[in-house]
């Protein structure tokens, strides 16, 4: 299969990519653009580790051909930061609540929940667990992730602002 040239916009920067049309977006982000924070866990859209934002919406990068993402704004874990360049409130809460162990599923979870909290500032625990159910984590048992998302939501609403 012949390679074709196309352009991807990732984290606000344009990247020229020369790849086969069948190349997955997850592989292009990691191999052609060199951003390895987006992880590949199953390549069939179940585990959620490769989740990125496409025009602001969480998508499985392993279910999209890179060439399909032309002209859209792709956001990856590398672009998630706090206002001061440090942790975002969600990253900070995950750090405090021990919401990650091996960390392999973490970028997909951070990207998914950042987008969710933006649209849903006051979710119930049930809501959080339902949204999180699209991301598999084999280490934590999910409880500490849920607590961290709740804590981040409180802080983003201006409550519970004390940072450990």
């Amino acid at each position: 299969m012949d390679k074709v040239a196309f352009r991807l916009n990732v984290n606000g920067m344009d990247h020229d990519v020369l790849a086969e049309p069948r190349k997955l977006l997850s592989d292009a982000i990691r191999e052609d653009i060199g951003l390895t924070g987006t992880h590949v866990g199953c390549e069939h859209g179940v585990c959620g580790a490769c989740t990125v934002l496409i025009d602001g919406k969480p998508q499985r990068a392993c279910l999209v051909f890179a060439i399909q993402a032309q002209g859209q704004a792709i956001t990856t874990i590398e672009n998630v930061t706090g206002e001061d360049g440090g942790y975002s409130p969600l990253q900070q809460a995950l750090h405090e609540e021990h919401g990650l162990q091996c960390g392999f599923c973490t970028p997909g979870i951070v990207v998914t929940m950042e987008a969710y909290l933006k649209e849903n500032p006051d979710p119930s625990e049930r809501d959080i667990r339902d949204v999180l159910s699209g991301n598999l984590c084999r280490c934590t048992g999910y409880q500490s992730i849920v607590k961290a998302v709740q804590k981040a939501a409180r802080r983003m609403r201006g409550e519970d602002t004390e940072v450990a």
Binding site: R30, L35, T36, G37, T38, H39, V40, T76, I77, E78, V80, T81, Y87, Q91, L94, H95, E96, H98, L100, G103, F104, T106, P107, V110, A164
Partner: peptide, 18 residues
């Protein structure tokens, strides 16, 4: 809090495929 977290939370971890 864990020392490992900074790299793992920001997409800077180094797993085999990275």
């Amino acid at each position: 809090p864990r020392k490992e977290d900074r790299r793992l939370l920001t997409g800077q971890g180094r797993y085999l495929d990275d």
